[in-house]
Design a protein around this nucleic acid. Structure first.
Lengths: 133, 133
DNA sequence: AAAATTATTTACGTAAAAGTAAAACCCGCC
DNA sequence: GGCGGGTTTTACTTTTACGTAAATAATTTT
């Protein structure tokens, strides 16, 4: 079986709709070297791999990573199988990014726990005041 | 027993050291209304509650929240016990923020999983090339 | 073919979150 | 009693991540 439907190319507006960003934003990411769409004439054509990179970028943005940091993460994925010394370096980079992410997850869990407390207290208070109001 | 040592007041430089930010940054947060240190003469004095707010702010920054969003989160904690309608609204706010955080956690877990894969492949590759190199 | 739409390039603009610099103030102290 | 440290205010500057607008070109629609 083949994959359900692999599109050859995406237009810039298709992607702006999918990711809810402007064309300016996508071109900006190209300027920043995060994606490299090919051209037909002057028009950009985005491959599935560009689309995947955009998903990565958006995820990074949601996590509060800067463009520079997102570039680093992407470069980790792109690194070729490589030899010896490079691999050790790569693993160090991975470890560093993972540590950052673990810190963020800790922050999230703490914040969620606090929000849960607020909610619980609110619910208790509402019950005291006579429910359904 | 009392708490191990509750300081009455912190100076601005004490806090810049603890949180590794500049005085400019702390004053900026005051301008933004996130903290309200009291004054002795013109000098700012920060209470433990201000310090706790700063911890909250830093945590929010690590998670990529903007000042405006951090302000919202703080306002959730500050909301007084309140009555009826306010409480329902508060719970809605809590739910919204929590959803944002859960999305972020999902993003984090995905990214960590991908990084784990990169690491695993690297380790395998290193083993192939003859270990300790 | 004219008109409308869609995409590109170039360039200036902007909001957020501070950085930086200058000038003045207060404070203890040797 | 001047001096070095820390603090404050004011104001200008910078960086990041785009927004916006104008002019041009290519494509599609009528």
């Amino acid at each position: 079986m083949k994959s359900p439907e692999q599109k050859q190319f995406y237009s810039i507006t298709e992607l702006t709709r999918e990711f809810e960003v402007s064309t300016r934003t996508i071109r900006f990411y190209e300027d920043e070297g995060l994606i490299q769409p090919i051209r037909r004439g002057r028009t950009r054509l985005f491959k599935p791999s560009d689309r995947r990179l955009l998903m990565l970028i958006m995820r990074g943005k949601r996590l509060g990573f800067s463009i520079a940091e997102i570039r680093e993460i992407i470069s980790i994925y792109k690194e070729p199988p490589g030899e010896g010394g490079q691999l050790k370096l790569l693993i160090e980079k991975v470890t560093e990014k993972r540590d950052q992410l673990l810190q963020k997850r800790k922050d999230i869990d703490e914040t969620i726990a606090e929000l849960d407390q607020v909610e619980e207290q609110s619910l208790t208070r509402m019950a005291e005041l006579g429910v359904g109001r």
